[in-house]
């Protein structure tokens, strides 16, 4: 069974191919990382998986089913949750309610049963209590108790990132997409995130696909890595293999002579 695979995924915006024939496969339970310089198309791949962008070509297989072209809420229903590079929280809700939204797919209360909620014995009341209890477990896991009833808009950046992670976990996904979980954090906070990601993998058995710029972190936690540059995959393999790959080095460090760059990495440098 294919757990998750992306095959020949191409996303073209006009003449620009933000993702160009990207293929990779993830086995259940591993941590897979996508790396690459700015503008390499990492987030584009995420957006295609999520259904935010309709891919130009290719297929996205999740549990033997092609999920390409599904709307984002269907993808979520299939069992894929994500976090965003630039935090996308519901800033006028408190932490509890934000994470409660992650439980959206598990709740059956509709307009009528919700509107007619009367007491904790009613259907809507019981369901609220039960799901709030589940959310409390996530709040405990991520140590967010202090921020439980605070509006998230005014909370510190690192905390907001954590809440976003919590919201994704509340959806009990089988595959979790993390878009730069460490962006803008200091060394200590990054260390925390690394522990949590490991915990999520070990305790909850969730497969993780992540995008990250911090090489130390990526090398530490990933089982396998895919390197992209200008939308094209340039290397795939274990952390050691990828970090030693000449094209990856070229993409990150540049080459000594401009004309010497490998065709796939240096040619046609995109205008900013």
């Amino acid at each position: 069974m294919t757990f998750f695979a992306v095959r020949h995924l191409t996303m073209a915006f006009g003449g620009l191919k933000a993702a160009d024939a990207v293929s990779f496969e993830i086995t259940k339970g591993e941590i897979y990382a996508i790396i690459g310089p700015n503008g390499a198309g990492k987030t584009t791949v995420f957006n295609c998986i999520n259904g935010i962008y309709p891919p130009t070509e290719g297929s996205i297989i999740f549990k033997d089913r092609n999920i390409r072209g599904l709307s984002p809420d269907r993808v979520a229903k299939a069992g894929i949750a994500r976090t965003f590079q630039n935090i996308e929280l519901f800033s006028n809700m408190n932490t509890m309610e934000n994470i409660m939204l992650g439980r959206h797919l598990f709740m059956k209360t509709g307009l009528f049963r919700g509107g007619l909620m009367w007491g904790k014995k009613s259907f809507a009341g019981k369901e609220e209590i039960e799901n709030r209890r589940r959310v409390e477990e996530i709040i405990d896991l991520l140590e967010l108790q202090t921020y439980r009833n605070k509006f998230v808009g005014a909370l510190p950046y690192g905390i907001q990132k954590k809440i976003e992670l919590g919201r994704a976990l509340a959806a009990e996904p089988e595959l979790l997409l993390l878009d730069e979980p460490c962006a803008g954090m200091n060394a200590e906070e990054k260390q925390d995130v690394v522990f949590w990601i490991k915990d999520i993998q070990d305790m909850l058995g969730i497969t993780i696909l992540l995008i990250e710029h911090d090489m130390h972190m990526v090398m530490d936690i990933s089982d396998r890595i895919l390197a992209l540059n200008f939308g094209r995959p340039i290397a795939e393999g274990s952390p050691a293999e990828v970090s030693a790959h000449p094209e990856v080095l070229a993409a990150y460090l540049g080459t000594e002579e401009a004309g010497d760059a490998p065709a796939s990495a240096g040619a046609g440098r995109r205008p900013a």
Binding site: I52, P72, A81, E88, L89, N92, M93
Partner: peptide, 17 residues
């Protein structure tokens, strides 16, 4: 909650189902 989520961040709301 879904209403508020749509108002505050509709893309995030959609990816949460």
């Amino acid at each position: 909650r879904a209403f508020i989520a749509i108002r505050d961040a509709h893309i995030a709301a959609e990816t949460m189902g």
